[in-house]
């Protein structure tokens, strides 16, 4: 085959790629993502206004309830269909985080509950927790030093 540089080849195959339907994908992401957040707001309002729970606890309960809903949908095999349709609209909300914890737990059950489910449960979501805690700890340290300096 005639010599072709990697850059030339990249130009060739990038040019032939099917065009991503960006507007359609964004519309679906917007609708589903917005809907999940609205459902979250609804749950929050029911807890505060009807159940009389304080705002802070209600916020935690809302996360837990959304995680529970995502768990059921993942278990029933529905969440991956939502994900296929909505893309980022199903990945970005906390339900997406829950799906990324629950789906490997289900998947790796075949390798047993210890070496499979429990060991692989954070195989997708691990980076989120690691980077989140890293960043909040460093920022927390800076905040602490700032408070100490202000107090002086």
């Amino acid at each position: 085959m005639k010599k072709m540089s990697k850059e030339e080849y990249k130009t060739l195959y990038e040019q032939k790629k099917p065009k991503a339907k960006l507007f359609r994908n964004c519309s679906k992401a917007f609708l589903v993502g917005g809907l999940i957040c609205t459902i979250g707001q609804g749950i929050n309002d029911i807890l505060v206004k009807i159940a009389g729970i304080n705002e802070i606890d209600a916020s935690a309960y809302t996360s837990i309830i959304l995680v529970f809903i995502a768990a059921i949908l993942t278990g029933l095999g529905v969440y991956d269909d939502i994900g296929k349709f909505a893309g980022a609209g199903s990945v970005v909300p906390i339900t997406g985080f829950a799906n990324s914890v629950i789906s490997p737990a289900m998947e790796f059950k075949k390798e047993g509950l210890v070496f499979g489910t429990s060991a692989k449960i954070f195989v997708i979501a691990g980076p989120v927790i690691v980077y989140g805690l890293m960043t909040s700890t460093i920022c927390g340290l800076i905040y602490y030093i700032y408070r100490v300096v202000i107090a002086l």
Binding site: K17, P18, A20, N25, T74, G75, G77, Y79, D80, D81, I82, G83, K84, A86, G87, A88, S90, V91, G96, N99, S100, I102, S103, P104, M106, E107, F108, I124
Partner: peptide
């Protein structure tokens, strides 16, 4: 899928290619 890519129940959107 479980060896090379992602768990089956993970909501994921792959590109058209």
């Amino acid at each position: 899928e479980r060896q090379y890519r992602t768990p089956l129940e993970l909501g994921v959107q792959r590109p058209d290619w």
